[in-house]
Write a protein that binds this DNA or RNA. Structure first.
Lengths: 147, 147
DNA sequence: AGCTAGATTGGACTCAGTCAATTCTGGATA
DNA sequence: TATCCAGAATTGACTGAGTCCAATCTAGCT
């Protein structure tokens, strides 16, 4: 795991540093983590290198994003969130009540929404879709107190 | 215009205050304005009430948003932006280079993207689409210096 | 004209992220 | 395997955007 993160980095021409490996590892099983989530997890991680400065974290996230190893999403009202899934044209469902985020696969290319009806002279390179609503648990909780 | 803003407010059960009327008026012809844009415009407006505190501005924007008189969008990397167009299911094109935002009409209900393929138990009430790319002028400018 | 719930103000504060100068280190080279 | 240096990390001050709270004001009902 550590090894594969290192390979991944080297393959994309980035140096394999403890900090970058730690961020990649922390993101596994922690989809949509915020910078604060990662900072906390890495600081509390047992094992060798358990430190990473705030600035360092932002640098790493920026480097990995530009290398397309991770993706950054910023739903309204939330700090930036990061995920390992890249290049699969997936989108997001966000719960207005608890902020939970779920991935949603979307047909690539075929869906009309991926091509704006009027492109207004823009060269479009990405379509980002966010569905807003309420997740099951929050809906149940709201119904239970039927006020 | 002042009058119609007042009517609009009263019709939705909100008090017609100088500050709220000023914000609604400022938003006409200023689509996708940020809070700072509005603050500056209102402070510099000739006519009677040219003041509005920062907190007041955010309160007004919040009130108007909850009354569905305006809509708030927050493209990644940009402060919140406000617009008068509501309830018409339109979406946005954003230029990665200059930040310009254009409205794009989208087929209501019919487009597959408006219904997530997997809803993961969510009750979805809004689909928000942002197309990212480069606008015509920025593309020309970039091509001109063909570096 | 008076009253009061609702609206606005001012000022301190938080949160997320950035800048700049210095120090450190991965990994290519000799 | 030791050296070197461009790329990476650290520290700490700083900014921008928005929020909190307590005091004051006012739209519009009576």
């Amino acid at each position: 795991m550590e090894q594969s993160a290192g390979d991944l980095l080297r393959r994309t021409g980035l140096r394999s540093t403890a900090q970058r490996r730690a961020v990649l590892t922390a993101l596994q099983g922690r989809p949509h983590a915020t910078a604060a989530d990662l900072e906390e997890h890495i600081a509390g991680a047992e094992g060798a290198s358990g430190t990473l400065s705030r600035q360092g974290l932002y640098n790493v996230l920026d480097d990995l994003t530009r290398a397309h190893l991770i993706r950054c999403i910023e739903p309204a009202g939330s700090p930036a969130r990061f995920e390992l899934r890249v290049g699969d044209n997936h989108h997001h469902l966000v719960c207005r009540t608890c902020g939970r985020i779920e991935d949603v696969d979307c047909a690539v290319g075929a869906a009309p929404c991926l091509d704006p009806i009027q492109d207004k002279g823009f060269t479009v390179d990405e379509a980002e879709i966010t569905w807003w609503g309420q997740c099951g648990p929050c809906r149940s909780r709201a119904a239970a107190q039927h006020s």
